[in-house]
Computed example of a mutant assay.
Amino acid sequence: MVRKRESVPSLNDLVIGTVAEIHDHGAFVTLDEYGGLRAYVPLGEVSHTWFRSIREVLRVGQKAVFKVIRVDPARRLVDLSLRRVSDAERREKLIEWKRAQRAEKILELAAQKLRKTLDEAYEKVGWRLEDHYGEIFKGLEEASLRGEEALLEAGVDERWAKAVAEIARQNIKLPRVKMSYLITLQCVDGGLPALKKALTAWEEAVEVPQGVTVRFYTLGAPRYKLDIEALNYRDSERLSREILKSIESAARGSGCTFAYQKLKGE
């Protein structure tokens, strides 16, 4: 069961709940992220549209996203609303929930490998990643990308870091964005030295972030292909712009002609 560090949610939190009991006056829900803590959904908080019976909206065993509208931490009493959850909030929470489930599975596999419990995995790894990266799965994505270093930075000890990094790399495949450009570069006066200088000028001028790959291909002079792969569109676009600007500047300085076009469908 995916878990939170807190024993009860806070006011206005979005939570995942499983409908346990349905009555004419409302429904009781168990909160999946809080150890099955029991919460209540008043009848008036079930739907913003008219219905004849609460059972038209809810059914026992149904999982849904709810919003916390009242909470008494001392007495561990929580009231929820279904009707106050917007479509955007529901989508966002479900994404968060799925990421948390994937994170817990990786922690569980690491715990099994080290002959430890899932509770120990959360204590030694999970909560430290949450403190450092803001989300456990975000920390595991970093581990998939950068290995043990990403975990050690968060205060995870070396033994756990090695096990978790290995499992993260096996189970998390980060999506990549690819951009490709056709470059036309001619250096009549400077010849091959000017050409090489222009095509490699970016290497000293542009810093390539970790996880990004840059490749050049010769298609037959004066045509060259530039491929850039990054983890998101923003980084790929920014790096493309910087590399092309650097090549253009060096080309112009050597009296070369330079032009490029972005390739569609790449």
Rank of each mutant, 00 (worst) to 15 (best):
D72H: 08
R76P: 03
G61K: 11
V68F: 04
V71I: 10
V68N: 06
E89V: 05
R70H: 08
G61R: 10
W97V: 09
R70F: 11
S81T: 15
S81V: 04
L94V: 13
F66Q: 05
I69V: 15
R90M: 07
K98P: 00
K98T: 02
V60N: 02
I69G: 03
W97K: 14
I69P: 01
E92F: 03
W97N: 08
E92G: 12
S86F: 09
R91C: 00
K67L: 00
K98V: 12
P73K: 07
V78F: 04
D72S: 14
K63W: 03
V68I: 09
A74T: 12
I69L: 02
Q62E: 09
K93S: 01
V60K: 13
V85R: 06
R84D: 15
S86H: 05
D87I: 12
V60W: 01
F66P: 12
L82A: 11
A64D: 14
G61P: 10
R90T: 07
V85H: 05
F66N: 06
L80S: 06
V78S: 09
F66R: 12
Q62A: 15
K63H: 08
D79S: 15
L82W: 13
I69C: 06
E96D: 12
V68D: 08
D87T: 04
L94D: 02
D87P: 12
R75S: 10
R70N: 11
A64G: 06
F66H: 07
A74P: 03
I69Y: 01
R83N: 07
R83T: 04
K67E: 14
S86L: 07
D79Q: 09
G61C: 08
L80P: 00
F66I: 03
R75C: 13
R76V: 05
D87F: 08
R76N: 02
R90H: 08
R70L: 05
R75M: 06
D87G: 01
L77R: 10
V60Q: 00
L94G: 05
K93P: 02
V85P: 07
L80M: 06
V65C: 10
A64H: 02
K98R: 15
R90A: 11
K63P: 03
W97F: 14
L77W: 09
V78G: 11
Q62L: 13
R83C: 15
L80K: 03
E92D: 15
K93L: 01
V71F: 02
L82T: 01
D72K: 11
V60L: 01
A88I: 09
V68Y: 09
D87H: 14
P73D: 13
W97Y: 13
A88T: 09
L94H: 00
E89S: 07
E89H: 12
D72L: 08
F66D: 10
D72I: 05
P73V: 10
R90G: 02
Q62T: 04
G61H: 10
V71W: 09
S86D: 09
R91I: 15
D79C: 02
V85W: 03
R84W: 01
A64E: 10
D72N: 14
A64Q: 12
D87S: 06
E89K: 04
K93D: 01
I95A: 10
R84P: 01
E89N: 13
K67W: 00
V71T: 13
V65Y: 10
A74W: 05
R91Y: 12
K98C: 00
D72F: 08
G61Q: 08
K93H: 04
